[in-house]
């Protein structure tokens, strides 16, 4: 079976690489020691795929995603998007945070979604920007809540609005850091389905950080497994299950088991 997967990875060989990480290192300096969170990470992200980054808490997933977004300085290594070095955040890579409170509370939902459009002078007029924003709110199934303030929305609705806001600028890559991590199980499934719909309709590349094996298997084309501690990316596993996927479809158990075995869950202290 290991061999099968190896062969399948070849399917990706000729796909276009959007983001390429080579020997990326990121350390955190504390008073006593240096924490080498990322140590010589190599990773390719292919255009149009959903790449899940899976690992236990504290292994460096957020650190890695923030590197890709361009938020933080790094010690060494190169991080290229379409051949250009990533040095700062840009609208072609938009981050969706784990925190439900990422919408600006002083703006209504529609104002939140319109705001990036105004900042970047996308539409010809305010009315045009409003049109675009309404489209995306419809895409994330949040029509009817345009004039609500964020604090009036549930956690799931907030994340939907954050998705709409992220998508308006037509980014090439969406970076999502455990966006559904704090949702109840049913809402999480519905948002996963919504994300897949959005992905199909927009063709956006998605890097999706999660600590949930099931979520990774259901969503992704490939799963980058990070190990406990800060050992970096242990393995990148292709995930070629047919879509739409549900828990328990043919092949699900195999891939779930394989990922599970890689995560050495039982070695926990």
């Amino acid at each position: 079976m290991g061999n099968d997967l190896k062969d399948e990875e070849d399917n990706f060989r000729d796909r276009a690489v959007t983001i390429r990480l080579r020997s990326v290192s990121k350390y955190y300096q504390s008073s006593q020691a240096t924490l080498r969170v990322l140590d010589n990470i190599d990773l390719d992200i292919y255009q149009g795929e959903i790449l899940a980054i899976l690992g236990p808490s504290g292994c460096g997933k957020t650190t890695l995603l923030r590197q890709i977004a361009g938020f933080d300085h790094r010690e060494s290594g190169s991080l290229l998007m379409d051949g250009q070095e990533i040095v700062k955040p840009e609208v072609k890579r938009i981050m969706i945070f784990q925190d439900f409170n990422q919408l600006f509370p002083w703006k209504t939902v529609i104002q939140n979604v319109v705001y990036p459009l105004q900042v970047n002078s996308i539409g010809e007029s305010d009315a045009a920007n409003n049109e675009i924003a309404l489209q995306y709110l419809k895409l994330v199934e949040l029509s009817g809540f345009e004039d609500s303030y964020p604090h009036q929305l549930s956690g799931g609705m907030k994340q939907k609005a954050a998705m709409a806001r992220a998508l308006t600028l037509k980014p090439k890559v969406l970076l999502m850091d455990e966006p559904f991590g704090s949702l109840d199980a049913l809402t999480r499934i519905s948002l996963q389905n919504l994300l897949l719909k959005v992905w199909r309709e927009t063709g956006v590349t998605i890097v999706f950080v999660t600590h949930d094996i099931q979520e990774a298997v259901i969503l992704s084309d490939r799963i980058a497994v990070m190990g406990r501690g800060t050992v970096g990316i242990k393995k990148v596993i292709p995930n070629l299950l047919d879509r739409p996927r549900v828990v328990g479809v043919a092949g699900y158990a195999e891939i779930y088991g394989y990922v599970y075995s890689l995560m050495d869950i039982n070695s926990e202290r």
């Binding site: 938020f71 700062k88 955040p89 609208v91 890579r93 945070f97």
Partner: peptide, 18 residues
């Protein structure tokens, strides 16, 4: 202020003044 707000702003291409 939660850093998330500022980072979201940076991500949308806001300059320091904005």
């Amino acid at each position: 202020i939660s850093p998330v707000y500022k980072e979201a702003g940076l991500n949308f291409g806001l300059n320091h003044f904005r």
